[in-house]
Design a protein around this nucleic acid. Sequence first.
DNA 1: CTTTGTCCTTGATCTAGATCAAGGCGGAAA
DNA 2: TTTCCGCCTTGATCTAGATCAAGGACAAAG
Lengths: 226, 226
Amino acid sequence: MPRNVIDILADCALFSEVSEAGFVRLATMARICRFPKSYRIFCEGDDCAGVYVVDGGLVRIFKTGSGGKEHVLHMVGPGGTFAEVAAIGGFKYPASAETIEPTNCVLLPLDPFRKALEEDHDLCLCMMAGMSSWVHDLVGLMGNVVLRDAAGRVARYLLEMATDEKDTIELPALKRHIANHLNLTSETFSRVLRRLIQTGLISDATNHRFRLLDREKLKQIAKGNE
Amino acid sequence: MPRNVIDILADCALFSEVSEAGFVRLATMARICRFPKSYRIFCEGDDCAGVYVVDGGLVRIFKTGSGGKEHVLHMVGPGGTFAEVAAIGGFKYPASAETIEPTNCVLLPLDPFRKALEEDHDLCLCMMAGMSSWVHDLVGLMGNVVLRDAAGRVARYLLEMATDEKDTIELPALKRHIANHLNLTSETFSRVLRRLIQTGLISDATNHRFRLLDREKLKQIAKGNE
DNA sequence: CTTTGTCCTTGATCTAGATCAAGGCGGAAA
DNA sequence: TTTCCGCCTTGATCTAGATCAAGGACAAAG
């Protein structure tokens, strides 16, 4: 059931602080896009078409290297946005985007969006906050990939996922993609999870769900238990 | 010879598009800081003091992991800025900063700076452009570190350094730090350079200077010379 | 029910690059 | 001059994790 542009934008955290007028402006320029599964929305190096807001579905943002190697920088789900950075900076896409599931998006086309940025100070402030959290995430990811070993990366990832009190998390995508995001092969990811289960730090439930049994030890591993 | 705040800010690319009034405002809030060599300006997790603008000297921005491991995210030289992201996003520093050489900085203190951001639209646009290039760099760095092998990372780094026509580049810091930035040990960095020299792709000059002899082959290596 | 395909797990092996261990070099101080 | 002290190079070894190779667990389709 395709939703209204207004509703989609309203559910997007990035624009929650935009003024009423600014919001209307965004809604008027917005266009709906529907993408099937495994659809390449854009490639690294393409010209930027604008800012995408995800409604339903899941998109992976990734860099491609030689020999078909890929690295997932980010997974964007409902309420998330992507391509803002290229839109704001005015350069070509630094990475590619592909749907993991059939995905419904709103596109805010480049030119009107940039015009709005120039004229709407509130929007500007929002986008800055959004970008700074992007940088924050990327710096965290760099640290994760470079400074930790495989177990540490997985532990940190699990802890990061478990925001609520319930200690139960659900992997938001294929293990393969998550492993790749952590710069691991799926084999290594699998082995690490098994070890965590065997040592009783987490327990396996059905359907990509896990329960964290010992947050403290996980934190130890994440910090690098010598 | 300590320079004037005005001159220092004028040399900073990030603020080159700020309006006259905005510039004056920045200059009035600015404070000069002088740091000796190897001085820790701030640590990951500290509260953000404001935005730093580098005048003379060199600063390395890095993450620290367990066991004293470090990873250099960025080196900031004259005209560069750091800590903008934490200042804008309003969070604690996601990485540490330490001088490599004695360094002269201008500090734009957090509160007045954020106030200026809220009120000055031009400033806002400047900072957005600055941040987006930060993201751009980080994405490039991630790709570099994750998708390329040692030789590829070094080749890409060398090509990136050689902006001018002269094909001669000077390493901006200790090899140890550059190696670490590329997520290599200094031993591996040394070995890769030697191999590039032996195969005639670059030649060694004195004092951390190199000349690129075969850009095409370097590009091949950077792309992953299957 | 069987077939097919996708994703995941598990084990065996391999390797890029880290780590360990010695020098070498060049500048600064004495 | 010599001595000292970072920094860099070079070689020998080690290892975390990749790669290769075989199933196994489901789910959808026939």
